[in-house]
Nucleic acid binder design. Sequence first.
DNA 1: ATAAGATGTAATAATGATAGTTACATCAAA
DNA 2: TTTGATGTAACTATCATTATTACATCTTAT
Lengths: 147, 147
Amino acid sequence: MRISSRFTIAIHIFACIDTFGDTCKVTSDFLAGSTNVNPVIIRKILGQLKKAGLIEVARGTGGTTVAKPLGEISFLDVYHAVECVGKGDLFHFHENPNTNCPVGRNIHHILDDRLLQVQNAMEEELASITLADLKKDTEKYLDENNL
Amino acid sequence: MRISSRFTIAIHIFACIDTFGDTCKVTSDFLAGSTNVNPVIIRKILGQLKKAGLIEVARGTGGTTVAKPLGEISFLDVYHAVECVGKGDLFHFHENPNTNCPVGRNIHHILDDRLLQVQNAMEEELASITLADLKKDTEKYLDENNL
DNA sequence: ATAAGATGTAATAATGATAGTTACATCAAA
DNA sequence: TTTGATGTAACTATCATTATTACATCTTAT
């Protein structure tokens, strides 16, 4: 199972706001054009990012802006905004192990700590990367390739 | 998106083989009973674990055994056996960003490194845990709870 | 040999999440 | 009040997971 494309779309959205926000009004249609994703999907993701306090969306007049400095928005913030994976919920457990079996009775409790350990490692890595880091990556890449 | 229950089922299977392997023949029906998962699903997972060289399954006569010492089987080995997530493939990218847009044209290349960094962090954590560790966890748990 | 018990696997269905699409109510500003 | 945008409901298509039935195949014991 892979993590849904909502995450990479969301990152793409931030990159667009940062790149075009000064010169254009960044609307859901504009973002749909850049990502090549349906505008309704974009609006749904914008709604999730807005709910998480990461962006502001202008009702009526239209257009999206970033709500905080890029250095204060981590990949984890974005991930949590668009992907609803609760604590200890990254791994899907088989629902009803047999409680009459000594293994079935205890496996969930014993394994949960280890699964959480893995999820935490992943989330800590997501937390360590900010949108400002990605912006630096971008500038470096464009510079190195004379773009 | 969550990681499929095949992983926790596979771990459960190893726990059963370790617990019951000496006294019973561990068949797919036996495992289906302990996990409360359909026998055909169990056989499919057994096939994946077998293909990865982690277990041996006796054709005809039936029964499953572990192919290596538990300390030499990591969570990552099990994960890779049952979950086919290739390198840089944990995050699902939106397929066709607009190449006429400077953001759309470069986002994939720039983001890929960071996504791989996150995937690697997760896989390294999975690699750091062995089935022997889990066995120790289990013994500790049973001991502490007088089971 | 063959019967018994197990694995391997094809085929089908149910379920749930993702993603696309149409349609429309709502909103803010010109 | 018109215009252009957001917010959302409703419906669909697609895909992965999981369950289930059915059966060919294999190994051992009788």
